[in-house]
Design a protein around this nucleic acid. Structure first.
Lengths: 337, 337
DNA sequence: ATATTGCATGTAATCGATTACAGTAATCGA
DNA sequence: TCGATTACTGTAATCGATTACATGCAATAT
């Protein structure tokens, strides 16, 4: 492995000249440049980023903090971040937390240790104050989930509006017995969707029945979607529509309903959330609220880049459009007894 | 941000002493140690990894080169690698190639530039010679796919045996009209599975019909699984079993068969490969060959670590066990006309 | 009493780039 | 023709750690 000094010697110039040439700083005569390039290719020189990074006091690496990478929702966000990062000359370091607080802290330590120049947090469990300590010192962006109590730049959709819109759609189909499969987690999105559900019912003068609200496992698992739907379908009177806060839960709901002998959507309407790819892999294709995952990731990276470049007028909040996609799992309410 | 020199000054010692204490090298008296620790916490000092890495000439980062992160197959491998890496004190840098050759090369450049200490390649398209140039200089491991023409350490399952075993199972169910949905890609796994299919038929004296072999898109997409299955089901005589080289293709096959009015498995058996989570999200649950994705990733990282630590007797090849999981999409062959 | 050993610590070189500063020669304007 | 630019290049400091080597001193061995 040859160094810049080797190249300089070979080309009979100083390291400063080599560096200037490579970085397009200052001026270098054409003849010198040629000699240097010849030396570089002869020695097949490649700059040592460890040295460059130390000198420039930057790593050109960003941290991606996510609960996991196997959930397609995160996978798509990561994909968007990764592409944007590559375009901007950054590498993406991935750090999974399994929703563990100490792991999250461990990840953020990398900022202090100069391993990364900035971080994008997905579904952080850290308290606002804790986060703020980092966000005040380093470029940090929250993607898709965020803590509303502190002012840290974030990118997300409007979860409240999305829920309201979905409920309006269900009401327009004539449903009045509408259940919800929420989750036990503490995410803002969960909260806002539930609030949208409650508020819309209230607005239309429909009683909010607590036994129509089920709480699935924090990770939106398929099996807990099945289990909670079983519970809901045993409530009297039975709901005619089930609004799930994730597609995986909706998948579980459909499977459970069918195993109980109900048809979807003829007997019961099921609606999901996220629109990850599973929604159109079997019938009935799932009616769902589509989130622009890739774009959420891409714009988070853009935002982080602005922060890292110390640009001014960096937006504190970016809200991307969601979309209700009507497919096969929703239909008009059946006649009530 | 304070440096080690700041700490040294605060504790009235030299930087060497601070460094020795932090790295457990040499000896430091208890009183001095206490002063240093006090200084560290007073200044909330964190070591600068940029400096350490330069001096030690290592980055403690490894490169993960994959076509994408959204395919759950890769996602699970990445998950295994990530966990193992974290345990071994390494961070994982993710680089997606979208199966583009120049992107792959770009990724590997990071080895030369000291951005990463080693690399794990998934489904590389690079020719063997090209790869060898890197593998000879740097720690490189191939995970799940590998080029048999060069001797680079790799971790995978035995794809040939897996296919043979699956075919034996189908034959034991009485099937003789067995079709295969393969792929146009050049992966070794694809090749070996196809060879296992052909060889097993030949061994049992069953004619290998080329019109029973369909080639799906290189990325195993759901839609191309549907399309190719439509073709196969129109061949005369119609196959009674379809062996797909991925679960996503099998999902497509089932959807296509049903849309054409066939029942799975009563009219046609469908078998997948990989056992990623979608296989049990709706009925019929898919009979498939399970790959230990997480473990493939974990062991790849272990192998890379051995390579990076210059351990001797590092295995050149690790073969992990696969498992045929019989679920609902396979059944005895229907009576033939 | 002297040599030897080990402990605790400090000084300074080092990793390989970037970059501030300085110097020399050629060119330009008046 | 002379001072002012401009073009090109080199020297050396710098980033912040690690670490080879040296030193002083006390304890032990001979």
């Amino acid at each position: 492995m040859s160094t810049m000094a080797d190249v300089a010697k070979e080309a009979r110039v100083s390291v400063a000249t080599v560096s200037r040439l490579l970085n397009n700083l200052g001026t270098v005569s054409p003849e010198t440049a040629e000699r240097v390039y010849a030396a570089i290719s002869k020695l097949s020189y490649e700059p040592n980023l460890l040295a460059r990074n130390l000198r420039k006091n930057e790593s050109r690496v960003i941290l991606l903090l996510a609960p996991n990478v196997t959930n397609p929702y995160y996978a798509h966000i990561l994909s968007g971040i990764g592409d944007a990062a590559a375009n901007l000359g950054y590498s993406a370091l991935i750090f999974t937390t399994a929703d563990d607080l100490s792991r999250e802290r461990e990840g953020l330590e990398m900022l202090k240790r100069h391993r990364v120049d900035g971080a994008i947090l997905m579904a952080s469990n850290l308290g606002g104050d804790w986060l703020l300590e980092y966000a005040n010192q380093f470029p940090v962006v929250q993607c898709s989930e965020f803590d509303p109590s502190v002012d840290i730049p974030h990118v997300s959709i409007d979860n409240y509006q999305a829920a309201v819109q979905t409920m309006d759609y269900l009401l327009s189909l004539g449903h009045t017995r509408i259940a919800m499969v929420s989750s036990e987690n503490q995410y803002l999105s969960t909260n806002l969707r539930l609030r949208g559900y409650r508020d819309t019912l209230a607005t239309h003068g429909i009683e909010v029945r607590e036994d129509y609200i089920a709480y699935a496992a924090p990770d939106y698992s398929f099996t807990s979607g099945k289990a909670r739907t079983r519970d809901l379908m045993n409530v009297d009177p039975r709901p005619t529509a089930i609004f799930c806060i994730s597609d995986t839960l909706a998948l579980g709901a459909i499977t459970a309903a069918r195993e109980m002998g109900f048809r979807v959507p003829e007997n019961v309407t099921v609606i999901g959330f996220d629109d990850v790819e599973d929604t159109t892999k079997f019938h009935p294709y799932i009616t769902t609220v589509s989130q622009p995952c890739y774009e959420l990731g891409r714009q988070s990276m853009q935002l982080l880049y602005s922060l890292m470049s110390q640009a001014k007028d960096v937006p504190h909040q970016v809200v991307l459009p969601h979309r209700l996609i009507v497919r096969e799992s929703s239909a008009a309410s059946p006649k009530l007894d």
